[in-house]
Design a protein around this nucleic acid. Structure first.
Lengths: 219, 219
DNA sequence: GCGTCAACCTGACGATGTCAACCTGATGGG
DNA sequence: CCCATCAGGTTGACATCGTCAGGTTGACGC
Protein backbone atom coordinates (compact mmCIF):
# COMPACT_ATOMS: atom_id res chain seq x y z
CA UNK A 1 0.00 0.00 0.00
CA UNK A 2 2.81 2.31 0.91
CA UNK A 3 4.63 3.82 -2.01
CA UNK A 4 8.39 3.53 -2.03
CA UNK A 5 10.26 6.49 -3.27
CA UNK A 6 11.89 5.97 -6.66
CA UNK A 7 15.61 6.03 -6.94
CA UNK A 8 17.23 8.89 -8.82
CA UNK A 9 16.78 8.39 -12.51
CA UNK A 10 13.63 6.36 -12.07
CA UNK A 11 11.39 9.36 -11.70
CA UNK A 12 10.23 8.83 -15.23
CA UNK A 13 8.43 5.71 -14.08
CA UNK A 14 6.04 7.83 -12.08
CA UNK A 15 5.29 9.77 -15.22
CA UNK A 16 4.14 6.59 -16.92
CA UNK A 17 2.05 5.60 -13.93
CA UNK A 18 0.37 8.99 -13.82
CA UNK A 19 -0.33 8.80 -17.54
CA UNK A 20 -1.83 5.33 -17.16
CA UNK A 21 -3.96 6.40 -14.21
CA UNK A 22 -5.26 9.40 -16.11
CA UNK A 23 -6.16 7.26 -19.09
CA UNK A 24 -7.89 4.67 -16.91
CA UNK A 25 -9.86 7.36 -15.15
CA UNK A 26 -10.93 8.82 -18.45
CA UNK A 27 -11.98 5.49 -19.88
CA UNK A 28 -13.72 4.13 -16.79
CA UNK A 29 -15.86 7.16 -16.12
CA UNK A 30 -16.08 8.41 -19.67
CA UNK A 31 -16.44 11.91 -18.36
CA UNK A 32 -13.65 14.40 -18.78
CA UNK A 33 -14.50 16.28 -15.62
CA UNK A 34 -13.71 13.13 -13.65
CA UNK A 35 -10.12 13.59 -14.70
CA UNK A 36 -9.05 15.46 -11.58
CA UNK A 37 -5.48 15.97 -10.55
CA UNK A 38 -6.40 14.72 -7.11
CA UNK A 39 -8.08 11.64 -8.50
CA UNK A 40 -5.12 10.88 -10.75
CA UNK A 41 -2.66 11.38 -7.94
CA UNK A 42 -4.76 9.31 -5.56
CA UNK A 43 -4.99 6.43 -7.99
CA UNK A 44 -1.26 6.57 -8.55
CA UNK A 45 -0.75 6.54 -4.79
CA UNK A 46 1.01 9.86 -4.73
CA UNK A 47 0.26 13.33 -3.45
CA UNK A 48 -1.51 15.77 -5.72
CA UNK A 49 1.25 18.30 -6.43
CA UNK A 50 3.60 15.49 -7.39
CA UNK A 51 1.93 15.50 -10.77
CA UNK A 52 3.63 18.81 -11.36
CA UNK A 53 6.98 17.11 -11.20
CA UNK A 54 6.30 15.57 -14.59
CA UNK A 55 3.64 17.74 -16.20
CA UNK A 56 3.60 21.51 -16.39
CA UNK A 57 -0.11 21.67 -15.64
CA UNK A 58 -3.32 19.78 -16.13
CA UNK A 59 -3.52 20.62 -19.81
CA UNK A 60 -0.08 19.18 -20.37
CA UNK A 61 -1.17 15.96 -18.73
CA UNK A 62 -4.27 15.74 -20.89
CA UNK A 63 -2.26 16.51 -23.97
CA UNK A 64 0.14 13.71 -23.12
CA UNK A 65 -2.75 11.29 -22.77
CA UNK A 66 -3.96 12.41 -26.17
CA UNK A 67 -0.58 11.95 -27.79
CA UNK A 68 -0.67 8.32 -26.76
CA UNK A 69 -3.99 7.84 -28.50
CA UNK A 70 -2.75 9.52 -31.67
CA UNK A 71 0.21 7.21 -31.82
CA UNK A 72 -2.00 4.20 -31.37
CA UNK A 73 -4.38 5.40 -34.08
CA UNK A 74 -1.58 5.98 -36.54
CA UNK A 75 -0.24 2.52 -35.77
CA UNK A 76 -3.61 0.95 -36.48
CA UNK A 77 -4.10 2.83 -39.72
CA UNK A 78 -0.69 1.76 -40.97
CA UNK A 79 -1.48 -1.79 -40.01
CA UNK A 80 -4.85 -1.70 -41.76
CA UNK A 81 -3.32 -0.50 -45.00
CA UNK A 82 -0.33 -2.82 -44.96
CA UNK A 83 -0.18 -5.22 -47.88
CA UNK A 84 -2.90 -3.56 -49.87
CA UNK A 85 -1.78 -2.61 -53.34
CA UNK A 86 -4.67 -0.47 -54.47
CA UNK A 87 -4.14 2.92 -52.79
CA UNK A 88 -7.83 3.71 -53.04
CA UNK A 89 -8.67 0.54 -51.16
CA UNK A 90 -6.02 1.40 -48.61
CA UNK A 91 -7.57 4.82 -48.16
CA UNK A 92 -10.94 3.26 -47.51
CA UNK A 93 -9.45 1.01 -44.87
CA UNK A 94 -7.87 3.98 -43.18
CA UNK A 95 -11.17 5.77 -43.02
CA UNK A 96 -13.00 2.84 -41.52
CA UNK A 97 -10.27 2.19 -39.00
CA UNK A 98 -10.26 5.85 -38.07
CA UNK A 99 -13.96 6.00 -37.30
CA UNK A 100 -14.00 2.69 -35.47
CA UNK A 101 -11.02 3.69 -33.39
CA UNK A 102 -12.74 6.92 -32.48
CA UNK A 103 -15.87 5.08 -31.38
CA UNK A 104 -13.88 2.50 -29.43
CA UNK A 105 -12.04 5.29 -27.61
CA UNK A 106 -14.83 7.80 -27.39
CA UNK A 107 -13.61 9.43 -24.22
CA UNK A 108 -10.12 9.96 -25.53
CA UNK A 109 -11.34 11.01 -28.94
CA UNK A 110 -13.56 13.64 -27.43
CA UNK A 111 -10.65 15.07 -25.49
CA UNK A 112 -8.42 14.62 -28.49
CA UNK A 113 -10.45 16.49 -31.04
CA UNK A 114 -12.90 18.67 -29.25
CA UNK A 115 -10.53 20.64 -27.08
CA UNK A 116 -9.45 24.11 -27.97
CA UNK A 117 -5.84 24.63 -28.86
CA UNK A 118 -5.00 20.97 -28.85
CA UNK A 119 -2.04 22.12 -30.89
CA UNK A 120 0.08 20.05 -33.16
CA UNK A 121 -0.74 16.73 -31.58
CA UNK A 122 -2.42 15.27 -34.62
CA UNK A 123 0.11 16.33 -37.20
CA UNK A 124 1.99 13.08 -37.35
CA UNK A 125 -1.24 11.19 -37.83
CA UNK A 126 -2.34 13.70 -40.43
CA UNK A 127 0.95 13.22 -42.20
CA UNK A 128 0.17 9.58 -42.74
CA UNK A 129 -3.21 10.39 -44.16
CA UNK A 130 -1.63 12.83 -46.60
CA UNK A 131 0.71 10.02 -47.54
CA UNK A 132 -2.19 7.71 -48.31
CA UNK A 133 -3.92 10.39 -50.35
CA UNK A 134 -0.74 11.15 -52.25
CA UNK A 135 -0.58 7.54 -53.33
CA UNK A 136 -4.09 7.90 -54.74
CA UNK A 137 -3.12 11.05 -56.56
CA UNK A 138 -0.08 9.32 -57.98
CA UNK A 139 -2.28 6.46 -59.11
CA UNK A 140 -4.62 8.89 -60.83
CA UNK A 141 -7.64 8.01 -58.76
CA UNK A 142 -7.71 11.42 -57.08
CA UNK A 143 -6.63 14.77 -58.38
CA UNK A 144 -5.62 17.93 -56.58
CA UNK A 145 -3.50 18.99 -53.64
CA UNK A 146 -3.02 15.95 -51.38
CA UNK A 147 -3.13 18.04 -48.22
CA UNK A 148 -6.41 19.66 -49.15
CA UNK A 149 -7.89 16.38 -50.28
CA UNK A 150 -6.80 14.73 -47.06
CA UNK A 151 -8.38 17.51 -45.03
CA UNK A 152 -11.66 16.97 -46.82
CA UNK A 153 -11.60 13.25 -46.23
CA UNK A 154 -10.61 13.72 -42.64
CA UNK A 155 -13.48 16.14 -42.24
CA UNK A 156 -15.91 13.46 -43.30
CA UNK A 157 -14.47 10.75 -41.10
CA UNK A 158 -14.16 13.08 -38.15
CA UNK A 159 -17.68 14.35 -38.65
CA UNK A 160 -19.08 10.86 -38.59
CA UNK A 161 -17.16 9.85 -35.48
CA UNK A 162 -17.62 13.13 -33.72
CA UNK A 163 -21.36 13.30 -34.32
CA UNK A 164 -21.84 9.71 -33.21
CA UNK A 165 -19.98 10.42 -30.01
CA UNK A 166 -21.40 13.78 -29.08
CA UNK A 167 -24.99 13.22 -30.18
CA UNK A 168 -25.91 9.70 -29.14
CA UNK A 169 -29.57 10.65 -28.93
CA UNK A 170 -29.83 11.10 -32.69
CA UNK A 171 -31.83 8.49 -34.60
CA UNK A 172 -28.78 6.58 -35.76
CA UNK A 173 -29.45 3.50 -37.87
CA UNK A 174 -29.20 0.15 -36.15
CA UNK A 175 -26.38 -1.10 -38.29
CA UNK A 176 -23.65 1.33 -37.38
CA UNK A 177 -20.99 -0.51 -39.34
CA UNK A 178 -23.04 -0.09 -42.48
CA UNK A 179 -23.48 3.59 -41.73
CA UNK A 180 -19.76 4.02 -41.30
CA UNK A 181 -19.16 2.21 -44.56
CA UNK A 182 -21.68 4.45 -46.29
CA UNK A 183 -19.92 7.51 -44.94
CA UNK A 184 -16.54 6.27 -46.11
CA UNK A 185 -17.97 5.55 -49.54
CA UNK A 186 -19.68 8.91 -49.66
CA UNK A 187 -16.45 10.70 -48.81
CA UNK A 188 -14.11 8.75 -51.02
CA UNK A 189 -16.50 8.51 -53.92
CA UNK A 190 -17.55 12.11 -53.67
CA UNK A 191 -14.00 13.34 -53.42
CA UNK A 192 -12.89 11.24 -56.35
CA UNK A 193 -15.68 12.40 -58.62
CA UNK A 194 -15.80 15.97 -57.40
CA UNK A 195 -12.08 16.27 -58.04
CA UNK A 196 -12.97 15.68 -61.68
CA UNK A 197 -11.81 12.11 -61.83
CA UNK A 198 -11.81 9.18 -62.56
CA UNK A 199 -12.69 9.60 -66.16
CA UNK A 200 -11.51 6.19 -67.17
CA UNK A 201 -14.17 4.78 -69.39
CA UNK A 202 -16.72 7.48 -68.79
CA UNK A 203 -17.84 9.40 -71.78
CA UNK A 204 -17.43 13.15 -72.08
CA UNK A 205 -21.15 13.68 -72.08
CA UNK A 206 -21.63 11.78 -68.84
CA UNK A 207 -18.75 13.63 -67.21
CA UNK A 208 -20.33 16.91 -68.21
CA UNK A 209 -23.62 15.76 -66.77
CA UNK A 210 -21.99 14.71 -63.53
CA UNK A 211 -20.22 18.03 -63.26
CA UNK A 212 -23.42 19.91 -63.83
CA UNK A 213 -25.11 17.72 -61.26
CA UNK A 214 -22.49 18.43 -58.61
CA UNK A 215 -22.44 22.10 -59.42
CA UNK A 216 -26.06 22.40 -58.38
CA UNK A 217 -24.88 21.96 -54.82
CA UNK A 218 -22.82 25.10 -54.63
CA UNK A 219 -24.31 27.61 -56.96
CA UNK B 1 -24.89 51.73 -11.97
CA UNK B 2 -27.27 50.57 -9.33
CA UNK B 3 -29.67 47.86 -10.35
CA UNK B 4 -33.30 48.44 -9.58
CA UNK B 5 -35.18 45.44 -8.45
CA UNK B 6 -37.65 44.15 -10.98
CA UNK B 7 -41.29 44.25 -10.16
CA UNK B 8 -43.10 40.98 -9.64
CA UNK B 9 -43.72 39.38 -12.97
CA UNK B 10 -40.76 41.09 -14.56
CA UNK B 11 -38.30 38.57 -13.27
CA UNK B 12 -38.18 37.00 -16.69
CA UNK B 13 -36.37 40.09 -17.94
CA UNK B 14 -33.39 39.17 -15.80
CA UNK B 15 -33.37 35.79 -17.44
CA UNK B 16 -32.92 37.42 -20.82
CA UNK B 17 -30.17 39.66 -19.51
CA UNK B 18 -28.31 36.73 -18.00
CA UNK B 19 -28.62 34.84 -21.26
CA UNK B 20 -27.31 37.80 -23.21
CA UNK B 21 -24.42 38.31 -20.81
CA UNK B 22 -23.47 34.66 -21.04
CA UNK B 23 -23.51 34.77 -24.81
CA UNK B 24 -21.45 37.97 -24.88
CA UNK B 25 -18.91 36.48 -22.53
CA UNK B 26 -18.63 33.39 -24.66
CA UNK B 27 -18.21 35.33 -27.87
CA UNK B 28 -15.83 37.98 -26.55
CA UNK B 29 -13.39 35.62 -24.92
CA UNK B 30 -14.00 32.66 -27.18
CA UNK B 31 -13.07 30.38 -24.32
CA UNK B 32 -15.70 28.32 -22.61
CA UNK B 33 -13.95 28.35 -19.26
CA UNK B 34 -14.42 32.12 -19.19
CA UNK B 35 -18.13 31.49 -18.88
CA UNK B 36 -18.25 31.69 -15.10
CA UNK B 37 -21.40 32.13 -13.10
CA UNK B 38 -19.67 34.94 -11.24
CA UNK B 39 -18.63 36.63 -14.46
CA UNK B 40 -22.11 36.31 -15.91
CA UNK B 41 -23.72 37.63 -12.75
CA UNK B 42 -21.20 40.45 -12.50
CA UNK B 43 -21.81 41.54 -16.06
CA UNK B 44 -25.52 41.46 -15.48
CA UNK B 45 -25.04 43.55 -12.35
CA UNK B 46 -26.51 40.97 -10.06
CA UNK B 47 -25.21 38.66 -7.36
CA UNK B 48 -23.95 35.25 -8.32
CA UNK B 49 -26.63 33.02 -6.80
CA UNK B 50 -29.31 35.06 -8.51
CA UNK B 51 -28.60 33.10 -11.64
CA UNK B 52 -30.18 30.15 -9.89
CA UNK B 53 -33.48 31.98 -9.85
CA UNK B 54 -33.80 31.37 -13.57
CA UNK B 55 -31.53 28.43 -14.31
CA UNK B 56 -31.28 25.18 -12.41
CA UNK B 57 -27.50 25.12 -12.69
CA UNK B 58 -24.66 26.14 -14.93
CA UNK B 59 -25.37 23.42 -17.46
CA UNK B 60 -28.93 24.62 -17.82
CA UNK B 61 -27.65 28.12 -18.55
CA UNK B 62 -25.24 26.85 -21.17
CA UNK B 63 -27.93 24.73 -22.70
CA UNK B 64 -30.20 27.73 -22.94
CA UNK B 65 -27.48 29.67 -24.71
CA UNK B 66 -27.11 26.79 -27.11
CA UNK B 67 -30.82 26.59 -27.81
CA UNK B 68 -30.71 30.18 -28.99
CA UNK B 69 -27.99 29.35 -31.46
CA UNK B 70 -29.87 26.33 -32.78
CA UNK B 71 -32.93 28.43 -33.40
CA UNK B 72 -30.90 31.03 -35.23
CA UNK B 73 -29.21 28.37 -37.34
CA UNK B 74 -32.50 26.78 -38.31
CA UNK B 75 -33.86 30.21 -39.21
CA UNK B 76 -30.90 30.89 -41.48
CA UNK B 77 -31.13 27.52 -43.18
CA UNK B 78 -34.80 28.02 -43.90
CA UNK B 79 -34.07 31.46 -45.25
CA UNK B 80 -31.25 30.19 -47.45
CA UNK B 81 -33.48 27.56 -49.02
CA UNK B 82 -36.52 29.77 -49.47
CA UNK B 83 -37.60 30.25 -53.05
CA UNK B 84 -35.35 27.58 -54.46
CA UNK B 85 -37.26 25.03 -56.45
CA UNK B 86 -34.58 22.40 -56.96
CA UNK B 87 -34.39 20.47 -53.68
CA UNK B 88 -30.83 19.42 -54.40
CA UNK B 89 -29.79 23.04 -54.80
CA UNK B 90 -31.64 23.84 -51.59
CA UNK B 91 -29.76 21.09 -49.82
CA UNK B 92 -26.46 22.50 -50.99
CA UNK B 93 -27.42 25.92 -49.68
CA UNK B 94 -28.27 24.43 -46.33
CA UNK B 95 -24.91 22.77 -46.09
CA UNK B 96 -23.00 25.89 -46.92
CA UNK B 97 -25.03 27.99 -44.53
CA UNK B 98 -24.52 25.41 -41.84
CA UNK B 99 -20.74 25.43 -42.08
CA UNK B 100 -20.50 29.19 -42.39
CA UNK B 101 -22.76 29.67 -39.41
CA UNK B 102 -20.62 27.31 -37.39
CA UNK B 103 -17.45 29.20 -38.29
CA UNK B 104 -19.06 32.57 -37.59
CA UNK B 105 -20.18 31.33 -34.17
CA UNK B 106 -17.25 29.14 -33.37
CA UNK B 107 -17.50 29.56 -29.61
CA UNK B 108 -21.17 28.70 -29.52
CA UNK B 109 -20.78 25.89 -31.99
CA UNK B 110 -18.05 24.32 -29.93
CA UNK B 111 -20.27 24.39 -26.87
CA UNK B 112 -23.22 23.32 -28.95
CA UNK B 113 -21.79 20.23 -30.54
CA UNK B 114 -18.80 19.19 -28.53
CA UNK B 115 -20.39 18.88 -25.12
CA UNK B 116 -21.37 15.57 -23.70
CA UNK B 117 -25.03 14.90 -23.16
CA UNK B 118 -26.14 18.03 -24.96
CA UNK B 119 -29.44 16.21 -25.19
CA UNK B 120 -32.21 16.90 -27.61
CA UNK B 121 -31.26 20.47 -28.35
CA UNK B 122 -30.49 19.92 -31.98
CA UNK B 123 -33.49 17.85 -32.85
CA UNK B 124 -35.61 20.64 -34.25
CA UNK B 125 -32.75 21.72 -36.46
CA UNK B 126 -32.15 18.16 -37.50
CA UNK B 127 -35.80 17.85 -38.34
CA UNK B 128 -35.48 20.58 -40.91
CA UNK B 129 -32.53 18.87 -42.49
CA UNK B 130 -34.48 15.64 -42.76
CA UNK B 131 -37.19 17.67 -44.42
CA UNK B 132 -34.77 18.99 -47.02
CA UNK B 133 -33.42 15.53 -47.67
CA UNK B 134 -36.90 14.12 -47.98
CA UNK B 135 -37.60 16.59 -50.74
CA UNK B 136 -34.58 15.28 -52.59
CA UNK B 137 -35.72 11.72 -52.11
CA UNK B 138 -39.15 12.64 -53.41
CA UNK B 139 -37.53 14.29 -56.41
CA UNK B 140 -35.54 11.14 -57.10
CA UNK B 141 -32.14 12.75 -56.67
CA UNK B 142 -31.39 10.78 -53.51
CA UNK B 143 -32.51 7.35 -52.49
CA UNK B 144 -32.80 5.72 -49.11
CA UNK B 145 -34.00 6.56 -45.63
CA UNK B 146 -34.13 10.36 -45.32
CA UNK B 147 -33.06 10.26 -41.69
CA UNK B 148 -30.01 8.16 -42.39
CA UNK B 149 -29.12 10.20 -45.44
CA UNK B 150 -29.47 13.40 -43.44
CA UNK B 151 -27.23 12.03 -40.73
CA UNK B 152 -24.57 11.28 -43.30
CA UNK B 153 -24.76 14.73 -44.79
CA UNK B 154 -24.77 16.32 -41.39
CA UNK B 155 -21.70 14.29 -40.51
CA UNK B 156 -19.84 15.78 -43.42
CA UNK B 157 -20.88 19.35 -42.73
CA UNK B 158 -20.25 18.99 -39.03
CA UNK B 159 -16.89 17.39 -39.66
CA UNK B 160 -15.79 20.26 -41.84
CA UNK B 161 -16.91 22.91 -39.38
CA UNK B 162 -15.75 21.05 -36.33
CA UNK B 163 -12.31 20.31 -37.67
CA UNK B 164 -11.82 23.88 -38.82
CA UNK B 165 -12.75 25.13 -35.38
CA UNK B 166 -10.88 22.71 -33.21
CA UNK B 167 -7.75 22.31 -35.31
CA UNK B 168 -6.88 25.77 -36.61
CA UNK B 169 -3.22 24.80 -36.86
CA UNK B 170 -3.89 22.41 -39.72
CA UNK B 171 -2.66 23.44 -43.17
CA UNK B 172 -6.03 24.65 -44.35
CA UNK B 173 -6.16 26.05 -47.86
CA UNK B 174 -6.19 29.80 -48.21
CA UNK B 175 -9.57 29.93 -49.86
CA UNK B 176 -11.78 28.60 -47.11
CA UNK B 177 -14.98 29.29 -49.00
CA UNK B 178 -13.78 27.11 -51.83
CA UNK B 179 -12.89 24.38 -49.39
CA UNK B 180 -16.33 24.52 -47.85
CA UNK B 181 -17.88 24.33 -51.29
CA UNK B 182 -15.73 21.35 -52.13
CA UNK B 183 -16.83 19.64 -48.96
CA UNK B 184 -20.49 20.30 -49.68
CA UNK B 185 -20.06 18.97 -53.20
CA UNK B 186 -18.18 15.96 -51.95
CA UNK B 187 -20.92 15.15 -49.47
CA UNK B 188 -23.91 15.78 -51.70
CA UNK B 189 -22.37 14.27 -54.78
CA UNK B 190 -21.01 11.28 -52.94
CA UNK B 191 -24.27 10.65 -51.18
CA UNK B 192 -26.25 10.93 -54.36
CA UNK B 193 -24.06 8.55 -56.27
CA UNK B 194 -23.34 6.19 -53.41
CA UNK B 195 -27.07 5.88 -52.85
CA UNK B 196 -27.16 4.38 -56.34
CA UNK B 197 -28.64 7.40 -58.08
CA UNK B 198 -29.02 9.50 -60.21
CA UNK B 199 -29.09 7.17 -63.14
CA UNK B 200 -30.73 9.65 -65.46
CA UNK B 201 -28.78 9.47 -68.67
CA UNK B 202 -26.02 7.30 -67.35
CA UNK B 203 -25.56 3.98 -69.06
CA UNK B 204 -25.79 0.69 -67.20
CA UNK B 205 -22.16 -0.05 -67.86
CA UNK B 206 -20.99 3.21 -66.39
CA UNK B 207 -23.21 2.74 -63.36
CA UNK B 208 -21.71 -0.67 -62.84
CA UNK B 209 -18.25 0.79 -63.11
CA UNK B 210 -19.05 3.55 -60.64
CA UNK B 211 -20.45 1.01 -58.21
CA UNK B 212 -17.36 -1.11 -58.49
CA UNK B 213 -15.25 1.96 -58.00
CA UNK B 214 -17.05 2.99 -54.84
CA UNK B 215 -17.02 -0.56 -53.53
CA UNK B 216 -13.24 -0.52 -53.45
CA UNK B 217 -13.49 1.82 -50.49
CA UNK B 218 -15.21 -0.56 -48.16
CA UNK B 219 -14.20 -4.03 -49.09
C1' DG C 1 -52.10 48.55 7.61
C1' DC C 2 -50.59 44.17 7.24
C1' DG C 3 -49.31 39.74 5.58
C1' DT C 4 -47.47 37.41 1.64
C1' DC C 5 -44.70 36.47 -1.89
C1' DA C 6 -41.49 37.29 -5.68
C1' DA C 7 -36.95 39.07 -6.25
C1' DC C 8 -32.62 39.35 -4.77
C1' DC C 9 -28.40 39.39 -1.40
C1' DT C 10 -25.01 37.59 2.19
C1' DG C 11 -22.21 34.18 3.81
C1' DA C 12 -20.61 29.91 3.65
C1' DC C 13 -19.14 24.99 2.08
C1' DG C 14 -16.59 21.59 -0.50
C1' DA C 15 -13.89 20.80 -4.53
C1' DT C 16 -10.57 22.17 -7.79
C1' DG C 17 -5.87 23.87 -10.05
C1' DT C 18 -1.71 25.65 -8.50
C1' DC C 19 2.24 27.30 -5.79
C1' DA C 20 5.80 28.05 -2.03
C1' DA C 21 8.15 25.85 1.31
C1' DC C 22 9.76 21.95 3.53
C1' DC C 23 11.43 17.13 4.03
C1' DT C 24 14.24 12.85 2.83
C1' DG C 25 17.02 9.49 1.31
C1' DA C 26 20.52 8.03 -2.20
C1' DT C 27 25.01 9.50 -4.29
C1' DG C 28 29.48 11.09 -5.23
C1' DG C 29 33.72 13.84 -3.92
C1' DG C 30 37.06 14.78 -0.38
C1' DC D 1 33.71 7.78 6.37
C1' DC D 2 31.17 11.99 6.24
C1' DC D 3 28.81 15.56 4.48
C1' DA D 4 26.94 18.59 0.78
C1' DT D 5 23.92 18.11 -3.14
C1' DC D 6 20.09 17.14 -5.53
C1' DA D 7 16.23 14.33 -7.43
C1' DG D 8 11.95 12.94 -5.67
C1' DG D 9 8.66 13.70 -3.23
C1' DT D 10 5.14 15.93 0.87
C1' DT D 11 2.46 19.51 3.60
C1' DG D 12 -0.20 23.34 3.86
C1' DA D 13 -2.15 27.06 1.90
C1' DC D 14 -4.55 30.26 -1.63
C1' DA D 15 -7.82 31.85 -5.08
C1' DT D 16 -11.56 30.47 -7.68
C1' DC D 17 -15.24 27.73 -8.92
C1' DG D 18 -20.40 25.79 -8.53
C1' DT D 19 -23.85 25.55 -5.20
C1' DC D 20 -26.92 26.08 -1.19
C1' DA D 21 -29.27 27.81 3.29
C1' DG D 22 -30.99 31.60 5.13
C1' DG D 23 -31.93 36.54 5.47
C1' DT D 24 -33.67 41.09 3.41
C1' DT D 25 -36.53 44.20 0.73
C1' DG D 26 -39.98 46.08 -1.75
C1' DA D 27 -44.68 45.75 -4.21
C1' DC D 28 -49.41 44.27 -4.15
C1' DG D 29 -53.98 42.25 -2.54
C1' DC D 30 -57.25 42.37 1.13
Amino acid sequence: MKRVRANPGEGVRLREQILAAAEELLVETGREEALTLRAVAGRTGVSTPSVYLHFADKDALIEAVCLRAWDELERRMREAARGIDDPFRALGRCGRVYVRFALDHAAQYRVLMMRQGSGSAAEACFGYMVEAVSACVAAGVLRGDPQTLALGLWSAAHGCASLLISQPSFPWPEDLDAFIDDTVRMAGFGTALASRLPRHGISTEVVAELDAFAARLTE
